[in-house]
Design a binder for these strands. Structure first.
Lengths: 208, 208
DNA sequence: GGCTGGACATACTAAGTAGTATGTAAACCG
DNA sequence: CGGTTTACATACTACTTAGTATGTCCAGCC
């Protein structure tokens, strides 16, 4: 058996930081940033408080790192990159929403969208969160617009559609679907909402 | 000068409770339920902690009272009752959204929708909140559907429209508009989003 | 192989937290 | 008008919180 290039050490800066970050993300996702304590987080970790404050100067900095290093990449990986596989981006949007929300574990659905959760909780409270969450949302909108423009030149999206306006609205629809399912506590509401979403997307698609 | 029927007393159960409830609503609206302490609330009141716990057994009970006695009536007063004045409910929905979001103080807009804020923060965390917030949302949807049905029989809403599905979607649009403006931190985003909302509402309206 | 610095662990502090115990004076009732 | 209840105010407690101070041990380097 070959040794790995960087052999497993009993201590590892990168992996420790990642462990804290990932478990913190899950805890914050479920209980909110203000609803989770640093002690809560380290308790769910193999590490201790000393490690936490070695990696993150304050709890707020941890929050910022969650947005930048976990949340934003997650948005791109789940809602943007998959569209590359579709000639018609509208088709991809429908498919992804069905796969990631419609066919998601209902229990998990009740906790909503990690991004939306943080936006609603922290954006008005702290400016550091605000700017970072704005960046994430704008990135999502920008990337969506790129795909819509591509779909427009390829003839799938109606030429008169304002792609920027549509990108905004599609993000709104994602957050709205997540939020309303969470609020109603009923994953079954997805079918009803999804029908309206598809109806809108068809309305900006060139009829075949 | 006539004495009022119930003369002003130095102590008044009803008005004290209302003072606590109203200031608590504003504080929770701005900082979240978990982000506000009982001490914070009483500090913004002319009363003290003794009064607080005389009126509310726990902080959670205060939260429940906020949903039942402040939030739910507010939803009805702002988004449902005004529709009575319109023969065409879709026209009323557009007018109300423009008046209450589009022409609202931008600073206030950044804190979003009080109902949506609480839903995203507390619905997954506490079952007592969950059921109450569900009730509020379902009431909103139910009342909206009544208006849509009325508009349908009056010929303003297309006969083939599923009014229940539309009511769900319209509530989603409200929460989504609030949420995205808050997330983007840009009240100017309203114009963009509002255009899409109007576009949808026109699509379920019978052409004149 | 000893030394140094980094990657943690342990123990602590000061401030805030929900909630309580008790006191007190105003309102009501006879 | 005297007593009881109600509507609070004050002072306190037990606990949790973010953050710190200090100790320790492993890893790489000379």
């Amino acid at each position: 058996m070959r040794q790995p290039a960087r052999p497993t050490k009993t201590r590892n800066l990168e992996s420790s930081r990642k462990e804290i970050l990932d478990t913190a993300f899950l805890e914050v996702y479920q209980h909110g940033f203000q609803g989770v304590s640093v002690d809560d987080i380290v308790r769910k970790t193999s590490l201790t408080k000393g490690a936490f404050y070695h990696h993150f100067p304050t709890k707020l900095d941890l929050g910022y790192a969650i947005v930048d290093e976990v949340l934003t990449p997650l948005i791109i990986a789940r809602w943007v990159s998959p569209l590359d596989a579709y000639d018609n981006p509208l088709e991809g949007i429908v498919a992804q929403m069905k796969a990631l929300i419609g066919e998601c574990d209902p229990a998990l659905l009740r906790t909503g969208c990690p991004l939306n959760n943080l936006v609603q909780e922290m954006a008005p409270v702290d400016p550091g969160f605000r700017t970072r969450l704005q960046r994430a949302l704008n990135l999502w909108i920008d990337e969506l617009e790129v795909h819509l423009k591509r779909g427009q030149t390829a003839g799938f999206v109606r030429p008169e559609v304002d792609t920027r306006q549509a990108a905004h609205f599609i993000v709104l629809l994602h957050e709205g679907v997540y939020g309303l399912i969470k609020g109603l506590g009923d994953p079954g509401a997805f079918r009803t909402l999804f029908a309206s979403v598809k109806q809108y997307l068809r309305s900006i698609e060139t009829p075949s």
